[in-house]
Design a protein around this nucleic acid. Structure first.
Length: 648
RNA sequence: GCUGCUGUAGCUCAGUGGUAGAGCACUCCCUUGGUAAGGGAGAGGUCGACAGUUCAAUCCUGUCCAGCAGCACCA
């Protein structure tokens, strides 16, 4: 019999008969390891204990102590156990796929009746029964024809389609959890009892398209979370509760930052507090851009379709645009306009006025551009995904050989801004050509290559995000994560050879001839709206002092201190601090509670003692202890704290 | 946009086929209180919109609108 040589993590090697399973290998090492083994890494691949090993390889036996494989197996087995439970309760439900995801798994079903929350309870109960049965998990490799016939006979069309889409040279693997069978590439545990029955929870049911295609059937997806033990599950559920408290929609209401209403879906009514954050951030960005060599412009909101036709938006982007038709009787001329969904065409129009020389490049043209996009209703989300928003947008008109240095410059620029705003870490994705796009393949080749090279030259190896580029060019995406773990694209850097061509932008080169500039689209915050949403969630509403809309409340303890309260407020306001008085007829406890809930970073309480000594009692948000300070001390401290980081 | 759920006072929510309730917030009064809710009184709702069924609809049915979760979308 042929032999295979297996290398263990400690470097030792042992020979086994070819076709040996990881289960047998584990048992050969020690009885206890044989019992504890749950899977193996064979040449780095996650192997089921039952799979035969047919070639020399490195091997490491996994036990429940190994987090990553253990969690993967638990979650994957739970996906199967859940599908089995569902089919045991409702035999006519059709099964599809059920992968492991972050913190858990999901499984998509086709069933006419919707699953209800009560159903989830019933499924969970049935799953626990299955776990308690400790049914053996068994696997076999099947012939394609046999598998197709099996699922055709069982009336499982989704499985048939899945098999047909699996490349012909890949073996088809079947798994049984007890008598219940599913097509699955594995690996799995050895019996259902290995899954901890008290550490999972079915979370929700929602629609999901078959194969992620909105033209195909809508299935019902049940989500579950699972961990190795009860304590981890408890921690996870607790984390979700904490995350819900940071939700910017909730905090936006509690801090009186903004509201939204039916008459203007996806658009924001900024209240004074929220608008203060917005303008503070905008002032900061304006200063940074001036330092960064940008010029600021402003362009029209309502623009004739003719320009959008030229730019390509009318063709590629129309369904996302607000179209404005002017009533003929009142119009001087018949016109169809659109609210601008992007600023780029208008910036090109500014560039085109007058002759531009190569000496003018790179020309960095910035606008806090208000855009309107008709986003699908289901995409709207608080102030993070809206229909009316303002980008910190800029377009850099440059020569091709300036792309790399501008890319480098931008990454430095953005990094400093993110650091100032408290984001040390962010994800960078490289998105290449989408299916719907403008421009030839040659142009795309050039754009993708130059952007990727420029990024690498800046010392960054971005994660590839295939097919997600803008319709006019590839992009780098700088993403931040919200409280609930959703990732949002904020910053972006895009190379565009298409729009300058379509709108015929030129500059006069050193040779005296006309040349086509390349256009670099870029944004740091992305949109003020989204970025503020992220800021709120990142800080759980407790914004850094300089960004806090209400920085200081001076609260009287007795009404006899009211005059002094107003004096303190006035002094602080003069020193550039956002301070307000609270001389209401309420106890100090009440005021402290209210302003703490309102996330005011500093509460200054004053009573008889402070009036006499010309001091204040300082209470900082999140701290129970108070301290005393003289009026001069607190004013000089807070006036510094109120400055934006770039002004320090 | 799709699937499911939801829509009652500013907020959080209860409730009923006979046109509605709580707590907090709000207004007024009492209280001048030392660091996360002092006491009392009062005001406040076309029960998301429009149709239909019914003697009678906030409640049942339908359509629409908006929100929530997920999917799809996301320049």
């Amino acid at each position: 019999m042929a032999q295979v040589s297996l290398t263990f993590p400690d470097g030792s090697k042992r020979d086994y008969d070819a076709g040996v399973t990881a289960a047998e290998v584990a048992a050969s090492i020690s009885k206890s390891l044989g019992k504890k083994a749950i899977s193996a890494q064979v040449d780095g691949a996650h192997y089921d204990l039952q799979w035969p090993i047919t070639a020399d390889a490195s091997i490491a036996i996994n036990t429940m102590a190994d987090d990553a494989p253990a969690l993967e197996l638990i979650r994957h087995d739970l996906a199967h156990i859940m599908a089995r439970a569902v089919q045991e309760i409702w035999p006519d439900v059709k099964v599809t796929i059920g992968p492991v995801i972050k913190d858990g798994w999901y499984y998509d079903f086709d069933r006419t009746e919707p699953f209800t929350p009560e159903d989830l309870g019933a499924i969970e109960k049935k799953m626990k029964e299955i776990i308690n049965k400790r049914d053996a998990v068994r696997t076999e490799v099947w012939d394609r024809d046999v598998a197709v016939k099996y699922y055709q006979d069982r009336g499982e069309p989704y499985k048939v389609e899945l098999i047909e889409s699996i490349p012909g040279d890949e073996p088809l693997r079947m798994y049984w959890h007890g008598d219940w069978q599913d097509l699955c590439r594995g690996p799995h545990l050895q019996h259902t009892g290995q899954v901890p029955g008290d550490s999972f929870k079915l979370m929700s049911v929602a629609g999901a398209y078959w194969r992620g295609d909105s033209d195909r059937a809508m299935l019902q997806r049940i989500y579950g979370v699972a961990f190795k033990n009860k304590e981890d599950l408890r921690k996870h559920l607790n984390m979700l509760e904490e995350a819900a408290k940071r939700d910017h929609r909730k905090l936006g209401r509690e801090m009186d930052l903004f509201h939204m209403q039916e008459e203007a879906p996806g658009q924001i009514f900024w209240h004074p507090n929220g608008w203060k954050i917005y303008t503070t951030l905008q002032d900061y960005m304006r200063r940074q851009q001036e330092k960064g060599g940008y010029v600021e412009v402003n362009t029209p909101q309502v623009v004739d379709r003719k320009l959008w036709e030229k730019s390509g938006h009318w063709e590629k982007y129309q369904e996302n645009m607000f179209i404005v038709e002017v009533d003929e009787e009142h119009a001087r001329e018949k016109a169809i306009n659109a609210l601008k969904p992007m600023n780029c065409p208008c910036h090109v129009e500014i560039f085109k006025v007058g002759l531009k020389s190569y000496r003018d490049l790179p020309l960095r043209m910035a606008e806090f551009g208000s855009c309107a996009r008709y986003e699908p209703s289901g995409a709207l989300h608080g102030i993070m995904r809206v229909r009316g928003f303002t980008q910190d947008d800029a377009h850099i008109f440059a020569t091709e050989d300036q792309i790399a240095s501008e890319c480098q410059k931008f990454i430095d620029f953005l990094s400093e801004i993110y650091r100032d705003l408290g984001f040390e870490k962010f994800d960078i994705l490289f998105s290449d050509r989408p299916e719907t796009r403008a421009g030839s393949d040659e142009v795309w080749d050039k754009a993708e290559t130059s952007l990727l090279e420029a990024t690498r030259a800046a010392g960054i190896e971005p994660t590839l995000n295939p097919g997600e580029g803008a319709f006019y060019g590839p992009k780098l995406e700088f993403s931040l994560t919200d409280a609930i773990g959703r990732v949002w694209q904020c910053g972006t850097f895009q190379v565009d050879f298409v729009l300058p061509e379509r709108l015929d932008a030129t500059y006069i080169g050193q040779d005296g001839a006309k040349h086509r500039p390349v256009m670099l689209h870029r944004a740091c915050l992305g949109s003020f709206e989204r970025f503020i949403g992220i800021l709120i969630e990142e800080h759980a509403g407790k914004l850094p002092f300089w960004l806090a809309p209400r920085q200081v409340v001076v609260a009287s303890i007795t009404s006899e201190a009211d005059d002094y309260v107003h004096e303190v407020v006035e002094t602080l306001v003069k020193a550039g601090v956002r301070a307000e008085a609270d001389t209401r007829n309420e106890k100090i406890n009440y005021k402290v509670r209210e302003h703490s809930l309102g996330k005011v970073p500093v509460i200054l309480a004053v009573g008889h003692r402070e009036v006499e000594e010309r001091t204040v009692s300082v209470r900082r948000l999140g701290q129970k202890q108070t301290s005393m300070a003289t009026l001069d001390e607190i004013v000089s401290e807070l006036s510094v704290a109120a400055k934006a980081p770039d002004l320090l």
